[in-house]
């Protein structure tokens, strides 16, 4: 299975943010704008990082913001935010972050197909740098479909 196409409303290119919280909230806004979560999900994603630390920065330059499945998630969704100026999350190895993915999962059953698709896109590839350099949502969608 491949990832469902990313909605254009879930893509924000070249955002200017002051810090990681603003970057994660923007990913949350993209998820709620595209209809997959309620606005409160953004705060839950921020809370996960406040509680456990910057572990969501899972690769150099990339944060995978997410919270647990819950009532704020209306449907599975992925948002992509690229930052004009990279921000630090306080991660020991993978800062600074240029690309923030926001992941919403409705139910933990079956979510592995979506993350397997993410692994297919990002494993050993240039996808993070390609996303950071993308200039349009159409380019981002192509990268996420593995076409570049």
């Amino acid at each position: 299975m491949t990832l469902a196409p990313v909605a254009e409303a879930a893509i924000i290119i070249g955002a200017e943010v002051d810090d990681w919280r603003a970057a994660v909230r923007l990913a949350g806004r993209a998820l709620s704008d595209s209809g997959s979560t309620l606005p409160g999900y953004a705060d839950e994603m921020v809370r996960m990082i406040e509680q456990y630390g910057p572990y969501v920065v899972i690769a150099p330059g990339l944060a995978l913001a997410h919270a647990r499945p819950g009532p704020d998630v209306l449907s599975d969704g992925l948002a992509i935010v690229t930052l004009a100026t990279p921000v630090s999350f306080g991660h020991p190895h993978n800062d600074p972050v240029r690309v923030v993915l926001g992941l919403a999962i409705k139910s933990s059953d079956g979510h592995l197909e979506s993350v397997a698709a993410l692994a297919n896109i990002f494993n050993g590839s240039t996808a993070i740098a390609d996303l950071a350099a993308a200039e349009s949502p159409a380019e981002v969608i192509e990268i996420m479909q593995g076409k570049t």
């Binding site: 969501v56 997410h66 647990r68 933990s108 993350v115 397997a116 993410l118 692994a119």
Partner: peptide, 18 residues
């Protein structure tokens, strides 16, 4: 293990299996 049990731990699981 991750904070949510989805997302990052899912990626670790998938890649560890491979």
């Amino acid at each position: 293990i991750c904070g949510a049990g989805i997302g990052s731990s899912g990626i670790l699981k998938v890649n560890a299996e491979r």
